[in-house]
């Protein structure tokens, strides 16, 4: 029982229709994020901008990079990258945000 043969998946060819759809979705989201930046939303401006960026990135990863059709291993690899990136950012910020605590 060799796992490598299980892992070999049928090569999935993503159809151009999906690519075109995603392409237009990305253009629409780009317009949306630029438009949103002209609206005064206070603290929500960065949140909306980043949320749209995350959606765009997810679309690119899932469809252009075929992760939706890939093995669990590929999905896990992407997850590991995002996880470590978040560890780097969150634990570093944990230091910066708490430096001033208790010093008043």
């Amino acid at each position: 029982m060799s796992e490598q043969h299980e892992q070999e998946h049928e090569h999935h060819i993503v159809s151009p229709k999906i690519y075109v759809t995603i392409f237009f979705a990305l253009l629409v989201l780009t317009t949306a994020t630029v438009a949103a930046s002209f609206v005064e939303m206070g603290v929500f401006n960065p949140i909306v901008a980043l949320a749209i960026a995350v959606v765009k990135a997810v679309l690119v990863v899932l469809f252009f990079m075929h992760v939706k059709y890939s093995t669990k291993l590929t999905k896990l690899t992407v997850g590991a990258g995002i996880f470590t990136f978040l560890v780097l950012i969150s634990l570093t910020l944990a230091d910066y945000f708490t430096r001033a605590w208790g010093r008043w």
Binding site: L91, A94, D95, Y96, F97, T98, R99, W101, G102
Partner: peptide
């Protein structure tokens, strides 16, 4: 570094 980060 922050004292709280030290604890964690």
């Amino acid at each position: 570094v922050s004292n709280y980060a030290v604890l964690v």
